[in-house]
């Protein structure tokens, strides 16, 4: 598995897979993130989609040194199985909540109903959490639905919006700017700061989208 290592700015050491999106690669990244989190010289370990960034304290470790360590860890790493929960999420596709459903359909050469059928037929795995508190990046999008991000991000995407960005799909937990194509909306709260566990989803969770009966 071809992995590229590089520095981003003064205090982030990163790696990314150059190969097609792969679930076993992501499992190895989870395993590596767990190992890296134990290091005191790292401020944050941020898995991405088949990639990972280690944010380090430059007073305590050099970037080049950390990259060497990451290479060694990667070569020795194995896939980690995460405890997986199955979660169904009810979605209102199209309409006000999914203004880009038509665009995604057009891009795919499908009807909006076929897009809904394809999006809700698949089982998705939470590859990692990021972007906003509680935002889950899901792998498993049907190849037919791959749609580029918007040329200019929206300034405000409503909470609960379900979107497609490239070969990824996910749900916006809170209202904020975003560049994905929006195909529907859910009422489920993915982030609640008043709860003891404010974040609903976890890496490894298996998600199914269920079309809500029309409003």
């Amino acid at each position: 598995m071809e992995m590229k290592f590089y520095l981003m700015g003064e205090y982030a050491a990163c790696m990314r897979s150059e190969a097609p999106l792969d679930f076993s690669c992501q499992q190895r990244i989870w395993a590596m993130a767990t190992q890296l989190k134990q290091r005191a010289d790292l401020v944050d370990v941020v898995p991405g989609m088949n990639n990972l960034a280690a944010i380090f304290d430059p007073q305590r470790v050099g970037g080049d040194e950390l990259i060497l360590t990451m290479k060694r860890l990667w070569n020795a790493s194995r896939s980690a199985k995460f405890p997986s929960r199955k979660i169904n999420i009810s979605v209102n596709y199209g309409g006000d909540g999914g203004p880009d459903l038509g665009l995604v359909a057009e891009h795919a050469g499908l009807s909006p109903d076929e897009v809904i059928a394809a999006h809700s037929a698949a089982e998705y795995v939470v590859y990692f959490m990021g972007f906003q508190p509680g935002f889950a990046y899901l792998g498993g999008l049907s190849e037919r639905l791959i749609t580029p991000r918007r040329a200019e991000p929206r300034l405000s995407v409503p909470a609960g919006s379900v979107g497609i960005g490239g070969d990824q799909t996910g749900i916006y937990p809170s209202t904020g700017p975003g560049g994905w194509q929006l195909i529907g909306r859910t009422a489920l709260r993915l982030f609640d700061p008043t709860k003891a566990e404010p974040i609903l989803l976890r890496a490894g969770d298996v998600i199914r989208f269920v079309p809500a009966t029309s409003r």
Partner: peptide, 20 residues
């Protein structure tokens, strides 16, 4: 092409497809 989502930090300069 379209990139897979990756970590960003304060200070990172992104260029969306509009080139700004």
């Amino acid at each position: 092409g379209d990139l897979r989502s990756h970590a960003v930090l304060p200070g990172v300069i992104q260029v969306p497809p509009n080139g700004q």
